[in-house]
């Protein structure tokens, strides 16, 4: 209606959607037709249309994760036409709009694929491995209260900005989904380098990287082979430089920490 292109015509699309009853069930691609899709709709709104149709017909709607629909919560995670979050760079699925598609298109929609991300149902996957990696050390051990004044430690703006850039990771898992090795290195490196850059993070610098990498391996993610798919598909532009920082931190920690285990 009020969108950019009042003349843009509604579209009819064929959707090929991965349907899977639960974690242990066999899944398969099922074809659906959706009609009168406005180019101003977001991709998820297009799926809403499909789900409303399905429900009215008494069929189970397609399960998918989403929440804020403004690109920051990291919930949405669809593999669209062979790309994590679809064809538009720097964009989460919820911010992808149908004007990027054409009338008559066939769109294939699949869940993230990785051993460490089992499918819950249809397009929803379990990303709790990410939480467990953070629990292994993605924090600074300070209790509430008793902290020094915020301006006690000056931090160069450039360092603060770089730490911020790394900290913007939304943990959507596109890096894992698009990596042919299902490696979680970009995710892990974003947290490690954020905290390694900041002086507050230096105290636990060594144990943090050792523990987080150990947990990452335990979860069954693959190893990084520096292909760069992760950074190319990252909706918030986390840079590959973080992986180099992670490697450096890991090597330094292993070489110099007092941890013999």
């Amino acid at each position: 209606m009020a969108g950019s292109n009042p003349n843009a015509k509604p579209m009819n699309l064929t959707l090929k959607v991965w349907r899977q009853k639960n974690r242990n069930a066999q899944g398969s691609i099922v074809d659906y037709q959706v009609k009168d899709i406005s180019p101003d709709m977001s991709f998820l709104e297009m799926l809403d249309v499909l789900n409303e149709d399905l429900l009215r017909q008494g069929e189970e709607p397609v399960a998918f994760d989403h929440d804020c629909r403004e690109g920051i919560c990291g919930s949405c995670n669809l593999f669209i036409n062979g790309r994590a979050h679809g064809p538009e760079p720097g964009t989460t699925t919820c911010q992808l709009h149908m004007r990027k598609f054409n009338d008559g298109d066939t769109i294939t929609i699949e869940p993230w694929r990785a051993n460490a991300f089992p499918v819950n149902k249809d397009l929803s996957v379990d990303r709790s491995a990410f939480d467990r990696i953070i629990q292994a050390g993605g924090y600074i051990s300070v209790n509430t209260g008793g902290t020094p004044d915020a301006n006690e430690i000056p931090i160069p703006k450039e360092i603060a900005d770089r730490a911020f850039e790394a900290a913007t990771c939304i943990a959507c898992g596109a890096c894992v989904a698009s990596c042919k090795n299902a490696s979680a290195m970009l995710f892990v490196s974003a947290k490690v380098s954020q905290l390694a850059l900041l002086p507050q993070g230096h105290v636990e610098r060594k144990s943090r990287v050792e523990n987080m990498v150990a947990q990452m391996d335990k979860e069954g993610f693959g190893a990084c082979t520096n292909i760069g798919s992760c950074a190319a598909e990252c909706p918030v532009g986390i840079s590959l430089e973080n992986i180099a920082i992670l490697n450096r931190e890991f090597l330094a920690a292993k070489a110099t920490s007092n941890n013999l285990a």
Binding site: K16, W18, G27, I29, F79, N81, G82, R83, P87, T108, E110, R113, A114, N115, A116, S178, K180, N181, A182, S183, G220, F221, G222, A223, T225, I227, G228, S229, A232, E233
Partner: peptide, 22 residues
């Protein structure tokens, strides 16, 4: 071998990885 295993048995039906890496 490890990396192949990490990907899992069910691959993508449509995968355009060539669009994001060499």
């Amino acid at each position: 071998a490890k990396n192949r295993a990490a990907r899992g048995n069910q691959g993508y039906v449509v995968d355009h990885i060539e669009q994001n890496s060499s």
